[in-house]
Design a binder for these strands. Sequence first.
DNA 1: TCTTTGTAATTTTTT
DNA 2: ATTACAAAGA
Length: 779
Amino acid sequence: MSELNEPQRSAVAFERGPLLIFAGAGSGKTRTITFRIANLVSTHRVPPYRILAVTFTNKAASEMRHRLVSIVGEDIARDLWLGTFHGIAAKVLRRYAVDARLNPNFVIYDDSDQKAVVTRALRDLDLDDKLYPPKQILAMISALKREGHDPAEKSLGDDENLDRIARAYQSALTRSGAVDFDDLLLKLVQLLEDPERPASLELRRKFDHVMVDEFQDTNLVQYRIVRALSANSRNLCVVGDDDQSIYRWRGADVRIIRGFQRDFPEALVVKLEQNYRSTGNIVRAALGVIAKASDREPKELWTAESAGEKVVLRACPDERAEAIFVASSIQKGRARGISSKEQAVFYRIHAQSRVLEEALRGANIPYQIVGGMRFFDRAEIKDMLAYLRLVQNPDSDTDALRVINVPARGIGDKTVSRLLDVAAENTTSVLQALRIALHQGEFNAGTAKKLAAFEQLILDLEGAKDKLSPADLLERIIAQTGYKDVLEKDDSAESDARLENLAELVGSLREYEAEAPETGEAPTLVGYLERVSLVAATDSMEDVAKVSLMTVHSAKGLEFEQVFLTGMEEETFPYRGLDGHDPEELDEERRLAYVAITRARKELFISYAGSRFLFGRTKYVIPSRFLEDIPPDCVKREGDLGRTAYVSSGPSSTYGAGSHSYGGGRREFGGGGFPSSRGGAPNELLSPGGRAGAKSMTIERGGRHIDREAFDDLPFDDAADAPSYEREPVVARAGQKVKHKSFGIGVIERLESGAKPMVVARFPGYGVKRIVADFLEFL
DNA sequence: TCTTTGTAATTTTTT
DNA sequence: ATTACAAAGA
């Protein structure tokens, strides 16, 4: 207790009844929960298996378990129920499969499996997938399930075809003995809320204490689950921070944490407001950004730490310059003794990672990408997992269809299509249909032989299932399916890589076999498959000396000494998809920015570019609105959006100093050089001193990318300060005068992002016009 | 049935 | 830019 501050202590000591902990960023949240569990177990003698703690990721769960091992010992820590909602649900559903109305061997379908099921349903119903895009259908089904509704009972909308598809989808899952992610939660809540089912009562009494971390990102079904599980004891402890709610799009509802006191009026509310993680400047920057969010639970985050380094705000001409800046700063950080493990680069969307990767590779900096194209998403891995799942559950059609002709064994579309018809006629699984068809002499001798061979293969593997360990079984599959031979015969680099991936998969199974006993379970195929289905991006983060690259979402719950937050531009962050933002989305983007900033302990670098090449085209962008909310005195501005930002120093500056070309990036500038980044102008770029909404951007005429090789060869030490363009730029800014051929002289109102830099200006007599900057003369 | 080639669509965040 | 998909040829 002496290691805790006052509010932390009151949370830890609180034994019975509902407890709501508002835990600000870096306020020792995990420490508090961990201590509370330890206290319940050792002081109040609560049996560990009567405590359920839900975390947001498996990684968070295992970290908590490790901490508990060191406080209360291995035996006790092992018996706790600790995991994610989905992980816990899978475990419970497996155990009470009958009452949950599930096949005990159920498999968990991921996005691509789900898509395959919907596509098949559309085919069966003879509906056009252009009219009913599988992704959108799935989004609707998911939304329905997250609200706690069963698609069999509740309508998706006016179009009755939608309901037909949803029902076909759901019955296909049932027949295949499969569940999707939402089902895991839905089936559990259905089980818990149905007093007719024996397991319901048992489960409702099972836990003395229920704790939920990251409660701000809980959805309705999850809330119903924890309420049911804690209904008996009333001992429900939830921990969260409404400022860090960033999963609304996934069904999370901040209103749940905000409404907790209404649902539990007797709840003790504790606020953890002292930040132990970050320096003063970083905390102030974060607070500046979050202060503008609407609907916040009132709280005051503060820190006793010194101000520390200023937050570096770096302007870059484009995303390449930004990447080089990041790479060279990482090198400098490392030279100062910062461990690579403590360095992280954040971006809003995965697509931004490529350029960063290139720059890091170019600078020989080891890095790991967290999330994105996952190991388990690779084709060869999915093939092997499909075999494993098929062995576990032969009804899983998606898996059967995936591997029936992998590696190619002469069973083509035509044959598969006939098999599907047989399956539909007999309402059986594909594998069962195969047996029926063979029995009925449905196919000619050649085809029948191939099909029989496949059936025998699966039978053999099923026979091996109980004799071999999961890893050995996989090795058997790799060999016996002929997958290995095919890859070995083809000696392309790609096949080699695939073989390596397969070896890695075997390794991952062996690792699982070695680790499973830690949580008190025997290693089984089911256990492994569950684990890979429910991995989060951060779960597979390696604890090695590498810089981590990840989306801001993935960064939730993590912290690093040195953080690079990239792409802080309008449209990129806040991200703007096809259609605009509603205010709630914008608020969520703001919270996302807050999460990103608060990950940094000592050093924070925020960068933004003047133009960004993304999704195949260059877009001219203006700095993120969030940057304006960071108090100016805790930042240090660096760099420029383009050369002329240096030259221009007033609000009405004009053309740049003419055309200059730069080859290698190290050459001296022409035209007498430019002031250093400490000049006054860049400051005005972002904080235009009271001019409402004024932003500026560099407009480039005839700019041209230098080629790739030149990019790779840029000297990393000072390349970040050198432009890599041939350009003739101009700085424009609100309030400035422009001249147009037909409209005459006007005043700029604002600037807009786009394929080409756009200027919105008011011309007397003509009104407000939106014009491509190329057609304007800047006065 | 498999492979190659060309065309079109698609780009947030994830358990 | 990348990828998914479709159609045509081997």
